Simulated scan of single mutants.
Amino acid sequence: MSQQQQTKKGASVLIHPKRCKNCGICLEFCPQGVFAWSADSVVEAVQPEKCNLCRQCEMRCPDFAIFVQEIA
């Protein structure tokens, strides 16, 4: 009998600062609460470990400033 090992996959969430206009759409659509406002009113990915790879932020970003990659 063989055992299968399950590995939890994570995500890398990158915000391209020159493209992002801080509209907040990613904050509104992220079901996991990955994003938050910084003290400087800039959107940051503060909890990328919560990302479930739905890519709603990436799809809805009007400036193509967010990139989500799966990491093993």
Rank of each mutant, 00 (worst) to 15 (best):
K21V: 12
P62C: 07
S2I: 14
V42A: 14
Q69F: 10
V43M: 04
A45G: 06
K8Q: 11
Q56D: 12
V34E: 01
S38Q: 07
C54F: 07
V42C: 11
D40P: 06
D40F: 14
C54G: 08
P17E: 15
A72L: 09
C61Q: 01
I71W: 05
E44M: 13
V13R: 00
Q3I: 13
V34K: 04
D40C: 07
K8T: 11
Q56T: 10
C61E: 00
E28K: 12
G10I: 02
K18I: 08
T7Y: 12
L27G: 03
P31F: 06
M1T: 15
V46Q: 13
C20Y: 09
W37M: 11
E58D: 07
G24V: 12
Q69C: 11
E70V: 04
L27K: 06
L53Y: 04
N52K: 08
L53W: 02
A45Q: 04
G33E: 13
R55F: 02
E70M: 12
Q4R: 11
A11H: 09
R60E: 06
A36R: 15
Q6Y: 10
D40H: 12
E58S: 06
D40W: 10
E49V: 06
L27Y: 04
M59G: 05
C61T: 00
V42H: 14
K50D: 02
M59P: 00
A65H: 06
Q69L: 09
A36S: 15
E28F: 13
C54K: 01
N52V: 08
